[in-house]
Computed example of a mutant assay.
Amino acid sequence: MALKKIIIYMPAFNEQDTIYKVLKSVPKMYDGFDEVELLVVNDGSIDKTEEEAINAGAKVISHNHNQGVGKAFQTAVNYALTHHAQVLVSIDADGQFDVNQIIEMITPITEKLADFCTGIRFQQGKPENMPKVKYWGNNLVSHIVSFVSKTKIQDASCGFRAYNRDCLYNLNLQGDFTYTHETILDLLHKNYKISQIPVIVSYFDGRISRVANNILKYGFKTSTIIFKCLKDYKPLQFFLYIALFIFGLAIFSGGFVLLHWINNNSITPYKSIGIISLALTGMSLLLTVYALMADMLGRIRDNQEKILYFQKKTYFENNK
């Protein structure tokens, strides 16, 4: 019988002060698993992060420069599949999360109640020392992800998560900056079951987030990822909504010109508005055609992802 292996993964960028202690505090045994491996993806650190992680007994994969937590996660997923892990847990290397809650994160997976789990940091409201603007931004993103996925997501940005092996086969991510929102949207789109677990989090006063150190930059980049996911997973609705909005502008401006013509038997001096209205009508029709084409391409994409899933599964299962 094959060993049941769990990999505890941490992305790290200049975490020399905390990573050794965090790694050493991770429980080394879990019911149902014969092997526990610690994995650190050293994302271009310029301090002693790699050395500290190795000293703590972790396997370290180093990027030659900082590529972002999204790219680090993709590296971890590939490693977990290559080394035949049944469960991959991701947790931060800075000690914000309680490593003893890993068991709570993996229990719904081992009991077949969920395919992947994500933490909820806001069960009791805003955590102490968390900036209000960041708390507000996280809630906004969670509402957007909930709208797109049609599933109530309470904390779409939490990096404390667990995935079963089948989820890892089916993840095909595009974002380098972050992965948290894209993984939820991707896996829910593919009908995987999610479990959301309240977790304890500590925000250290004065500490700067590696991902959200600039709220405007973070908001722009995460919005771009969600925007792309909406386009990819709901292409028909995406382009139709835009087409309907533009058609509404055309009707409004065209109706104004029409009323002026009925009352004055002339469209002067609003001829340009009439021309714009016709152009907007044409644009909305063109976008409707795009919507139908995008829907067709979306179905082709879904079929390609299914083929890729079986190819990856066959490849990794046959290379044990």
Score class of each variant (00 low, 15 high):
V40T: 07
R121C: 10
Y20P: 00
S25H: 00
S45Y: 10
V87K: 01
G95R: 01
K21F: 00
T151G: 02
A76L: 05
M1H: 13
I120K: 13
G125D: 03
N214V: 08
H189C: 06
S146V: 03
Y30N: 01
Y233P: 03
L285R: 04
M130F: 07
T49M: 00
V60Q: 10
G255A: 12
S202Q: 11
Y218M: 01
P127N: 03
N129S: 04
S146T: 09
F245Q: 01
S253N: 09
I262S: 00
Y203I: 00
L230N: 10
L286A: 15
D47M: 04
I7K: 08
I273T: 11
P108I: 13
K59H: 06
G248W: 00
V211G: 04
Y233M: 06
Q96E: 15
L278A: 15
I200E: 11
L185Q: 02
L81R: 05
G68D: 13
L88V: 07
L88I: 06
G255N: 07
G44P: 10
C167Y: 05
Y79V: 11
F245D: 03
P11M: 07
N214K: 09
L113V: 04
D34M: 06
I251G: 00
G282E: 02
K228Y: 08
D115K: 00
I103E: 15
N264L: 05
S209N: 06
F247T: 03
L230S: 13
M105D: 06
F33M: 12
F252I: 13
Y20V: 00
G206Y: 08
M105S: 08
V26F: 05
F310Q: 15
T151M: 04
H189G: 06
I226E: 12
K312A: 06
Y30K: 07
P131A: 01
P235N: 02
T118V: 15
C167G: 01
D295A: 11
E317W: 04
I194L: 12
D176T: 06
N14C: 05
M10L: 12
I91A: 08
Y233H: 03
N191E: 08
A243N: 05
M1V: 15
A2Y: 11
I194K: 09
F13G: 00
S209V: 02
F177N: 04
K5D: 12
L216D: 15
Y169R: 02
L230E: 10
A212S: 11
V289I: 15
W136Y: 11
I54S: 05
T224S: 04
F247N: 13
N138M: 14
M296F: 14
L187D: 03
D94L: 02
A53D: 05
F116R: 03
N139Q: 15
T118L: 13
L244Q: 14
A80Q: 06
